Amino acid sequence: MSILHTVNKSPFERNALDSCLKFATDGSAVLLFEDGVYAALKGTAVEPHVSDALGRLKVYVLGPDLQARGFSAERIIEGISVVDYAGFVDLAAENGKVQAWL
């Protein structure tokens, strides 16, 4: 059964992203939304960790939350897919479980 892991906290304020990347099994999906979108940005201290995870996890970022914080899709790490709200729903439906990392 596949799992959608959601991270909504900034990786610069909480360790939710670190915990998620540590425990997510290969092939799982990770959705970054709300302040979690900061983990998707190029040129940050967490970019190497997220880039390494892309080899075993599918990582998504919620486009409207990215835009609400003033960032465009050009700023995200290569390999991360941008989804809209309908894409968020599709991810939740496609995966057997949703695990929120707080």
Results as ranks from 00 to 15, higher is better:
Leu102Asn: 12
Ser81Glu: 15
Val82Asp: 03
Val50Ala: 02
Met1His: 07
Asp90Trp: 07
Ile76Tyr: 06
Tyr60Asn: 07
Glu34Tyr: 10
Asn95Phe: 06
Ile80Trp: 01
Arg75Pro: 00
Val46Thr: 13
Glu78Cys: 00
Leu66Lys: 13
Asp18Leu: 14
Val59Met: 08
Ala16Gly: 13
Ile77Cys: 05
Asp26Glu: 15
Ser28Gly: 05
Cys20Gln: 10
Tyr38His: 11
Lys42Val: 12
Tyr60Phe: 15
Gly79Thr: 06
Ile80Pro: 00
Leu57Arg: 00
Asn8Lys: 08
Leu57Ala: 03
Gln67Gly: 04
Asp35Met: 05
Leu21Tyr: 10
Phe33Gly: 00
Lys97Tyr: 05
Ile3Pro: 00
Asp52Phe: 04
Ile77Ala: 03
Gly96Gln: 11
Ile80Gln: 01
Arg69Leu: 11
Gly36Ile: 03
Ser10Tyr: 05
Ala40Phe: 06
Leu102Tyr: 07
Ser19Met: 12
Leu91Gly: 04
Trp101Arg: 06
Asp84Trp: 04
Phe88Ile: 04
Val46Arg: 10
Ile80Arg: 01
Leu17Asn: 10
Ile77Val: 09
Glu13Ile: 14
Leu102Glu: 02
Phe23Glu: 13
Gly55Phe: 08
Gly36Ala: 05
Val89Pro: 02
His49Lys: 15
Ala93Met: 14
Asp18Pro: 00
Glu94Pro: 00
Gly70Cys: 12
Leu41Gly: 11
Cys20Met: 13
Ala100Cys: 09
Lys58Pro: 01
Phe23Gly: 00
His5Gly: 01
Arg69Asn: 11
Val59Gln: 01
Ala24Ser: 05
Gly63Ala: 14
Leu4Ile: 09
Ile80Thr: 04
Ser28Cys: 09
Leu41Ala: 11
Phe33Arg: 02
Ile80Ser: 02
Asp65Asn: 15
Ile76Cys: 06
Asp90Pro: 00
Asp90Cys: 03
Glu13Thr: 15
Ile76Ala: 07
Arg75Cys: 12
Val59Asp: 02
Leu66Phe: 13
Ser81Thr: 15
Leu17Tyr: 11
Gly36Trp: 03
Asp65Cys: 15
Phe33Cys: 06
Ile76Pro: 05
Phe23Lys: 08
Ser19Cys: 12
Pro64Asn: 14
Glu78Ile: 04
Gln99His: 08
Ile76Phe: 09
Gly27Trp: 11
Arg56Trp: 03
Arg14Pro: 00
Val82Thr: 09
Val98Phe: 02
